[in-house]
């Protein structure tokens, strides 16, 4: 175990407000990191540019949010140490964002589910008692609008494209739908953050979100699986195996060379 002060380890925030902002930061960071794996390897040059754009937006959002976490509760000497040195179970992202880049169908469906959720979550931050957070949400929503447009177009093309692309989308939906329930789950942390005025309650938008998503999927000739048992726990730090492998890369330099400037 690394005993450097520049290693956070298992520490998680004491205040629910900080915890909530850290969840938002980790969501953006881990999905941004996942998308960055595709840099130079996307199925088409134009898609490489688009996926990198989304990755840049998300990691940019994460940076702002980590900086803000630091002002709410100084958990680390700086935002990089906060972002890049925690134990796996101290990452508070939802499980969806760590799902692997199985193929382009999985990538665009993961993006569509996440971005349409993130839009509702960030809209609930616009009237936040925390002005910085509201400003970050306002800026990010412009980016999210593009993410949704990109992902939606490709869900339609792949779902209603060829037999092969349809099958791949059906497989992606079968894998990823199980993680959609967690996005709108109101646990005690979220409830406390809502009570504190940090955001309005976006979880009551779950049904409207489902209606919108199911309609788009239907247009793409896709149907979500019935009676899905929703997988949860990411927000509480109960991460699946995927995150550990993401962190092996993401934390490599900070853990190998603690306290250095880069």
């Amino acid at each position: 175990m690394n005993s450097s002060p520049n290693f956070i380890g298992a520490m998680i925030p004491a205040k629910p407000e900080t915890n909530f902002v850290l969840r938002c930061a980790d969501n953006a960071m881990i999905l941004g990191q996942r998308l960055s794996e595709m840099c130079g390897h996307a199925p088409e040059l134009e898609l490489d540019l688009a996926l990198t754009n989304i990755s840049l937006d998300l990691i940019g959002q994460a940076g702002l949010l980590y900086d803000h976490v630091q002002t709410l509760e100084k958990l680390a000497p700086n935002a990089d140490v906060l972002a890049l040195t925690r134990d796996q179970n101290a990452y508070l992202n939802c499980l969806l964002v760590a799902q692997p880049n199985v193929d382009f169908a999985h990538i665009v469906l993961r993006q569509y589910l996440f971005s349409t959720f993130q839009k509702r979550q960030y809209e609930a931050l616009l009237s936040s008692s925390d002005e910085t957070l509201a400003a970050i949400a306002e800026k990010s929503l412009k980016e999210i609008a593009y993410h949704i447009r990109f992902a939606k177009d490709w869900v339609l093309r792949l779902g209603d494209g060829t037999e092969d692309s349809h099958e791949r989308m059906a497989d992606a939906l079968d894998c990823l739908w199980r993680y959609s329930g967690e996005l709108f789950e109101k646990d005690s942390v979220l409830a406390a953050a809502i009570d504190a005025g940090l955001l309005t309650d976006f979880t009551d938008k779950y049904e409207a979100w489902q209606i919108e998503v199911v309609a788009l999927l239907a247009e793409a000739t896709l149907t979500p699986p019935d009676d899905t048992h929703m997988l949860k726990g990411g927000y509480q730090g109960h991460q699946e195996d995927h995150l550990g492998h993401i962190l092996t890369d993401m934390q490599y330099m900070q853990l190998k060379y603690p306290s250095l400037q880069w």
């Binding site: 990191q33 960055s36 840099c39 840049l56 972002a83 330099m253 900070q254 880069w262």
Partner: peptide
């Protein structure tokens, strides 16, 4: 890219 040492460097 996935191993860049800081968020700024990664961006």
């Amino acid at each position: 890219v996935t191993r860049a040492p800081t968020l700024r460097r990664k961006l």
